[in-house]
Amino acid sequence: MADHYEVLGVSRDASPEEIKKAYRRLARELHPDVNPGADASERFKLVTHAYDVLSDPEQRQRYDMGGDGSAFGGGQGFGGFGDIFETFFGGGGTRGGRPRSRRERGQDALVRVTLDLGDVVFGTHRDIEVDTAVLCETCQGSCCQPGTSEATCDICHGSGQVQRTVRSLLGNVVTSQPCTACQGYGTTIPYPCASCQGQGRVRARRTVSVDIPGGVETGLRLQLPGSGEVGPAGGPNGDLYLEVTVASHETFSREGDDLLATLEVSMPDAILGAQTTIASLDGDVELEVRAGVQSGDVLTIKGRGITPLRGGTRGDLRVAVQVVTPTRLDAKQRALIEDFAKKAKAPAPRLAQFHQGMFSKLRDRFRG
């Protein structure tokens, strides 16, 4: 009798996992359904017998001590039979299983939308065009031509499975597999719907109305449950995901829930102060520029920022002052400035310790 270890191609000190792995590899190669040759059939029997012996610790010990290694000694020997099912039928042929359902959940859909900065202050409403699968209006998801219906499969008689006989050491074993005639559904469609080719759904463009909350930002995805594509045979819809991009604004930028902007102030207004009106994203706002304001000072207007995504108090509008120095003066203007300089006795320009650039200074003031 051939040595069981040589038959499986493993060493005598092989682990149980190595023995099992070797058996599965050879079983897939030599099984009669895969390799119908007579030689392969004989080798398959030897491989299965060797595995039956070596997979059982008690029989393996007896075999290693010089026993005959009978696969059925000691009332054991059904390990190989079980592994045949596991290898070829996923843990045993499923007898009497239920047929598959044609109705399946539809896939999710992703749509990208670009918003203006003003849209995210309070939120906005959008009608989104989505090109996806919708329910077939002709058959309403039945997949059949109107006036017809599904028919019980003649091959599996509605079970969705067919029985198959497999030869093994224990004789003929009957297993069940999905019916190839009906793909496991248990029914066939003799007259498929002409509009959807028997799918129960068609591609179409539809409109989805969406309320986009305030406070969204670029990269955020909003989930709309049940607004994705309809599933096969009229199955439940998947979800729709809306990915937001917020476009840049020519005046305002955003930091968290605050809006940032720069206010250019003339030298006279910076010296004397002024009252001005600025246009925010939700209407005009009165703003007081105090006398003596400096470039880089930040004026805060409470509650004129963005509404938080999860609710709460609106952010602020923060305006950084930039004093504009005139570059062109006529003779009279120059004389007035020179007279002012003499009377003010302003100190001459002087060096001071370097702390940070103007940009960093503004940034830190914006951040409070």
Rank of each mutant, 00 (worst) to 15 (best):
Ser11Val: 09
Glu338Asp: 15
Thr277Pro: 00
Lys45Trp: 11
Phe44Asn: 03
Val166His: 05
Asp3His: 03
Leu54Val: 07
Ala133Gly: 10
Ala352Trp: 02
Val208Arg: 07
Arg290Phe: 13
Leu117Glu: 01
Asp116Tyr: 04
Phe354Lys: 10
Met1Asn: 10
Glu255Phe: 07
Ser70Cys: 15
Leu30Trp: 03
Arg167Thr: 12
Asn172Phe: 02
Asp257His: 08
Val244Tyr: 02
Arg328Asp: 14
Leu287Lys: 03
Gln197Asn: 15
Arg167Ser: 13
Gln163Asp: 10
Arg167Cys: 14
Asp330Val: 08
Lys45Gly: 13
Cys153Met: 01
Gly37Ser: 15
Asp108Gly: 08
Gly215His: 01
Asp52Ala: 15
Gly67Phe: 03
Arg290Tyr: 11
Arg100Val: 02
Ala341Cys: 10
Gln183Met: 08
Arg43Phe: 07
Val120Met: 05
Glu250Tyr: 07
Glu264Trp: 09
Thr300Pro: 05
Gly256Glu: 06
Gly234Gln: 09
Asp339Leu: 15
Gly315Asp: 01
Asp339Ile: 11
Met1Tyr: 08
Arg103Lys: 15
Glu18His: 06
Phe340Trp: 14
Ser159Ile: 00
Pro192Trp: 05
Phe88Lys: 03
Thr87Pro: 01
Val293Thr: 10
Ile128Cys: 05
Ala291Ser: 13
Arg334Ile: 08
Cys139His: 02
Ile301Thr: 13
Thr124Ala: 07
Lys302Gly: 13
Thr251Glu: 10
Asp297Pro: 06
Tyr241Val: 03
Val166Thr: 02
Gly106Val: 11
Arg254Ile: 03
Ile128Glu: 08
Met267Ala: 15
Gln294His: 06
Phe44Val: 00
Gly97Phe: 00
Gln145His: 13
Val293Tyr: 04
His4Leu: 11
Asp282Thr: 12
Ala352Asn: 11
Gly231Met: 04
Leu263Arg: 03
Arg100Gln: 07
Arg12Ser: 14
Ile19Phe: 02
Arg203Leu: 15
Val121Gln: 01
Met65Ile: 03
Ile155Tyr: 07
Asp127Ala: 14
Phe359Asn: 12
Pro57Ser: 08
Arg363Asn: 10
Val323Pro: 07
Arg60Asn: 04
His125Asp: 13
Asp108Asn: 15
Ser168Arg: 05
Asp108Trp: 05
Thr94His: 12
Arg126Ser: 04
Asp330Cys: 06
Gly91Trp: 03
Val7Asn: 02
Phe78Val: 11
Thr325Gly: 05
Gly226Ile: 05
Glu264His: 14
Asp154Val: 09
Ser195Gly: 11
Ser55Ala: 15
Met1His: 12
Gly118Pro: 00
Ser195His: 10
Lys45Phe: 14
Val323Asp: 08
Ala331Met: 08
Leu329Asn: 09
Thr138Met: 14
Gly215Gln: 03
Arg103Asp: 00
Thr300His: 07
Glu243Val: 02
Asp119Pro: 00
Gly91Tyr: 04
Lys345His: 10
Ser15Lys: 12
Tyr5Met: 00
Val319Ile: 15
Val321Tyr: 00
Leu260Val: 01
Val10Trp: 02
